[in-house]
Each structure stands twice: as structure tokens, then as C-alpha cells.
Nucleic acid binder design. Sequence first.
DNA 1: ATATCCTACAACCAAATGGTTGTAGATCAG
DNA 2: CTGATCTACAACCATTTGGTTGTAGGATAT
Lengths: 110, 110
Amino acid sequence: MVVDQLSDAELDRLFQAFADTTRRDIMRRVTVGEYSVTGLAALYAMSFAAVQKHVAVLERASLVTKEKRGREQIVRGNHDGLEKARRLLDEYEAIWRQRVARIADILAEE
Amino acid sequence: MVVDQLSDAELDRLFQAFADTTRRDIMRRVTVGEYSVTGLAALYAMSFAAVQKHVAVLERASLVTKEKRGREQIVRGNHDGLEKARRLLDEYEAIWRQRVARIADILAEE
DNA sequence: ATATCCTACAACCAAATGGTTGTAGATCAG
DNA sequence: CTGATCTACAACCATTTGGTTGTAGGATAT
């Protein structure tokens, strides 16, 4: 049963979001703790605007949410996005296993 | 125990490779069956050279291997690459679960 | 031997990416 | 009120990406 069908564009955004070292690091951080955009920016050797863009990429990919708190914007990890990416890779893995099993069957028949 | 440490660049390439619908489709195909580059190219509404480039991206990401057979080049899925990507997402998932467990503990203490 | 098939790769192009600086609107502290 | 802080966003730039066409070389079939 397919609970949640992901569009190609959603998957493109998801994997694209993971395809950058800084963004993967941001994901780690915001999964464990709470960070404002400025708090995140302080961690990297690049401008505030650059980090802001990275957060925006993660947000568009549904990997992160922002919540306004006073003048700050708190960035938090969003479990759903991560799960979607995991699910796709698991799907590939399942296909792979089926194929390996099929080959084993064929060999067993001989 | 960390068996296989992946460099940032490797992970960039891995997720970048997955961040395209055509490439994800090629991955599905070559996981199940055998295809020459021309065989793959026939499946998509784009030039042979474009598909060839997609295969090259998958190859650089260690998701696919090519084997020369006569004048053809057979493209096959490479399980290792897929596993590496899966492992990273599982790692994030584990971090997440730890965090959720920690929050549950804090709440239980009250 | 010649024509055909498969592949590789260069050159080119438009759009996206990852970075920069600068400007401007909210919010908070004194 | 004023100044500092946090954020958003525009404009710009260099590089990469995803596509194209064209050329050339190795393998196959007739």
C-alpha cells in the first residue's frame, strides 16, 4: 500500500538538498538542537545570506521548518522529509534484493 | 565501528546522482536488468549524448558500473553506492531517534 | 572492404547553483 | 526614540548542470 506518493519534483528537491556538505551538516545540527538562522550562519565560513539560502533549499525540500520567535527564525529538522528519502532508497534496496533472489532461484533450478 | 568512511565529496556525488528523475529511472532499470547505453537511450525523449552523460554521473557516484561487451557497453547497478547513501540516511534517522528518546526521558523525569 | 552500429567526447547554450554585497523591514534593548 | 540585531531579498558573478549537435574511432555484419 502506497501511503504517500512522492512526485518526481519532490524527490529531485529532496536529494538535491542532501547533495551539499554544508546542508547535510545543517541537517545534523537542527535534528539535534535548535538554531536560529544567525546561529547556524555563525558555524560556517560563509556569509549569512549563503547560509540563509541553504536553509531555504532544505525548507523547500521539506527537510526543515522555520518558526518565528521574536525577531529570530528558529530552524528545526522535519522528520517527514528524511523519511521520504529513506523510503525511496529502501525501495531501491528491495528491488535489488528481489533481483538477487531471482538469480539465486534460477541457479537453484539447474 | 565505522567500516567505510565516506568523504564529503563522495556523498555530494551520491546524492547529486539521485537528484534527477531520469537518473533515478536509469537506476531502477539497471538494478533489475541489463542495458547497453544505447538501450537506455532508447527509453528517454532525449539525445543519446544526454543519456550517456547521465550514466557518467551515476558512474562517478559509484552507483553504476560499465562493462565492455563487443561494441556495446553494458551498464549495471552497483549495490555498494546505494548502500552508502542508505547508510547515511539511516545515521540521520538514528540521531533523530536518540533525540526523541532524550526528550521523552526529560518529560518522564517531571 | 564498406557500410552500419555503438560509444566517446568536444563545443556550445540556457538555466540552475553556490557564493558575494548591499538594501530594507521587524524586533529588541537602552 | 535610537541604535543594534535578525531576517529577507535583490542584484550580481563564476561555475556547474542538463541539454543539444557534430565529429571520430572501434566493433560488427554483409
